[in-house]
Structure formats: C-alpha cells, structure tokens
Design a protein around this nucleic acid. Structure first.
Lengths: 222, 222
DNA sequence: CGCCGTGTTGATCTCACTCAAGTGCGGTGG
DNA sequence: CCACCGCACTTGAGTGAGATCAACACGGCG
C-alpha cells in the first residue's frame, strides 16, 4: 500500500463529502489502531460474534457474506481499500453477517470505543462516518435489485462494473483494466448463481468482446 | 392509530435499545412534524429527488423499491408503524430508491433540519437513530441472501414470516394472524419472482396447510 | 353497466442448476 | 526431478424451477 499514515486514505475519503477541521483531522490521525496482515480467504468477522472494533481496509479486497442453510453462501458486498468493514457492529454489537478476505489483505483494526469517542467529540466526523454506513446501505439496495431482478448476464456485468468503478475511482488507469483478485466462484456467490453458470456467462462476455479477464487482471475491451 | 402523541411509538422503539433522559424524551416529543394522510399505493419519495425530511410511519405499510429497466421493480424492504422511512436522505441528499405506500397510510413528516439538530444536541438520540439505520441495513443484508440464494418457496415464506414477526412484535395476537395489506403482486416484487409464480407458491403453502391468506388477513395454520 | 385490478389456471419455453468429467497450474513431498 | 494432489477453470448432457403468454372469474368502482 501507499506510503504515509494508514488513515490518510480514509481522510481523503471523508473529505470528499465533509468539511473537516484541523481538530477533526488530528482526531482521525490519532485513532489507535492495530495493523493486521490477513492471509487470503480468511474470515475476519464471523456471524454471531461481537467484534470489539472495526476494520479499515488498507490493502486488498474484503467481502461480507451470509451462508444460507443448504444453499451455499451469498456475498452481499465488497470492501475496497478506504472502506471500513464491520461498521455496523459499532452500535449493533452482534454481527449479523460474516466478513472475509479475497486475497491477502492489510487492515487497520480500530477499537469501537475509540470510534465512539471520536463520534461523540466531533459532530462532523460522526456525520461523515454515518454517511459511510449509509453509502454501504445504498450498495445493498442496489445489490437487492441486481440479484432480484436481473438475469445472470446483467448481474455479473453489474457487479464487475461496480467493482471497476469503485476501484478506478481511486486509481484511474489508461487502459480500463484493474486488478481483479476474485475467483469466478466468488463472483458467482456475489451474483447468486452457480459457479458453472458464472463461467459460461464470463465466456459469453469474452466472446462478445466486452471484457478480457485473465490471471487476476480484468480489462474492458471497448 | 393509537391515541396519544404521534411520537409515542417511536419513543418506545428507541427506548428498547437506548436509555433516554427526560431531556431526550422532550427533544423527541417537541420535534416539528406534519401529519400526512397518504392514499393507497402512492409514491412518497421518488428516486432522484432530494426530500427535505423523513417520514415516521404512524399507520399503514410502506415499502422501498427500485425499478430495473425492462425487468419491473424490486421491493427492497417494508416499513411498518414505528419505522422511519427515508432516513438515508438525512446525510445522502439524493434518494437512490423510491418509497411508496401499500394501502392508505398515515405519516409524520419530520424535516431533516430538525432531526439533524436533535442529533447534534443529544449523543444518545444520535446513537439511537443511527442504530435504526443500521437495523434497516441488517434487513437489507437478509433480503440479499434471501433473494440471491433461496428458491421461490423459501423466499416467500421468509418474507411473510419477517413481516409477521415485525408486526406481531408490536401487537401480539392469539391466533397467529395479522393484517396483510399487500397484494400477491407486491409480494412477488419483494421476492423477485413473477406474480403468477407467487400465486402458485401461495397456493402450495395453502395446500400444505401452512397458511391461510384471504381478504387482507394472513393466518399461520399450525 | 362496463372497466380495471386481483387472483387463478393452463400451456409452453428457457434460463440456469446439477452432475460429471477433463484440463491446466502451482505447491508438496518422495 | 517427478509424481501427486488440490484448486480454478472449462465443457457437455440432462433436468427443473420459474418465466411468459393467454384466458377467465370475480369484486369494487365510476
């Protein structure tokens, strides 16, 4: 990940929609944290447990999911660097969903107590963090519509495009390509379709010359 | 709806998970509001607009939805009396989804400015309201898993049971029955299936002696 | 009275699932 | 160094859940 303080990316994110004072910036910068080097595909939060903090993603890709008895798991959303995963447990102690890593990831674990204190100290930061949870909620909304109403082709395209947009928002590339660490299996779980069918849809997208996805790199071929 | 102040039900709700001071209670009770009598199936918030307040449901049933081009609409969640619909626009001005009424509904429209001031005045109330949005987020999560992974039968059962639980939590009935103002069409839209198929699933549920749904009243037949 | 929306039923079709087998690659141990 | 294993991806065949289209019964309402 980039050089500099672990929270620099979070600050940038928050300042995109809030006006922070110097005190606010200091407040964030002084947040206690613990760097966690997280191996590939490992659980970070397990449903039913009460984590004592939230995880700021510094590098890598996380996803939240639910397992449905007898029907595998459904990935509900992805967390990219700059996102805070597990913010919901700030005020809803028991996690209602699990969070796991796609590839190896670097996280900054921030205790709830510290976040709560920050929120009580600065109304602006409270608002900014609240907004973060609301934006995650908006992504859920979209995901419900996506999974509920679109066919496999549109679902997969939608999810890939969403990831591309969010990732490219932070690091635009000339050739419309980006690192795509997910396996087809994971994309299938996010789309609510079987892995086999996801594979066929991806091949169809390739055949139509819409995308080129190979060895962890995905490229839109206009 | 019940006699008493329009916010009495909201207060009860908030006190279920927060400890309010007298000042907090007064703060809520003195919130400015405007009673809205809303006809059946009318839009309350339209996607793309920036409403100037949120709507506390006093009576009736609302739902939030998204329309997917060429694939009808997807209902993402229901709001029952005591819920605040459109809380997301508090800090995300442009509504990313629409909200509409099922049957006739009674709402208390509360300006965002008043809510924001409340939030800045009382940390406890801020937390309580934040928690409300998080709980709505948890329902979204569940809905994604529901629509993404379960078959039509389980989806429909899940949604009906969720509504039953939430409605009965406020007004338990002896015979496991409750007012179910939705049309089959609306349930289908919430499940992400066609109306025809929803009808067949409901008949199957009836045939199995699991529920009895007629003329706006739904009963679980053990 | 005619109209529209809801619920119901039947026939047909197709998208996506399951099962199954095979390829290619990276890692591990002999 | 090679044999082996596990995982991601690929391909094929058969099946089934759910969509679509169409028609009709019924009740409420202008």
């Amino acid at each position: 990940m980039q050089a500099g303080h672990p929270f620099s990316r979070l600050l940038l994110r928050l300042e995109r929609s809030s006006v922070l004072s110097d005190a606010d910036r200091r407040q964030i910068a002084n947040l206690p944290f613990k760097i966690i080097n997280c191996p590939a595909r490992s659980d970070i939060v397990s449903r039913g447990y009460a984590p004592s903090g939230s995880n700021l993603v510094l590098d890598g890709l996380l996803f939240s999911y639910k397992t449905v008895s007898g029907a595998g798991r459904q990935i509900t959303s992805f967390f990219i660097p700059g996102d805070i995963a597990g913010l919901a447990t700030l005020y809803l102690p028991i996690a209602d969903h699990s969070i796991a890593s796609v590839g190896p990831a670097v996280l900054a674990f921030v205790p709830h107590a510290a976040l709560q204190q920050t929120i009580e100290t600065s109304a602006v930061l409270a608002q900014a963090l609240w907004r973060e949870t609301l934006m995650q909620g908006a992504i859920f909304h979209e995901q419900i519509a996506n999974v509920g109403r679109r066919d496999a082709f549109a679902r997969l395209a939608h999810i890939v495009c969403e990831l591309a947009l969010r990732l490219r928002a932070k690091r635009p590339t000339r050739d419309c390509s980006f690192a795509m660490p997910c396996t087809q299996r994971q994309i299938a779980d996010a789309c609510g379709i079987s892995a086999v069918h996801a594979n066929r849809v991806i091949q169809e997208l390739r055949r139509l010359g819409l995308l080129d996805w190979d060895s962890g790199r995905l490229k839109f071929t206009t």
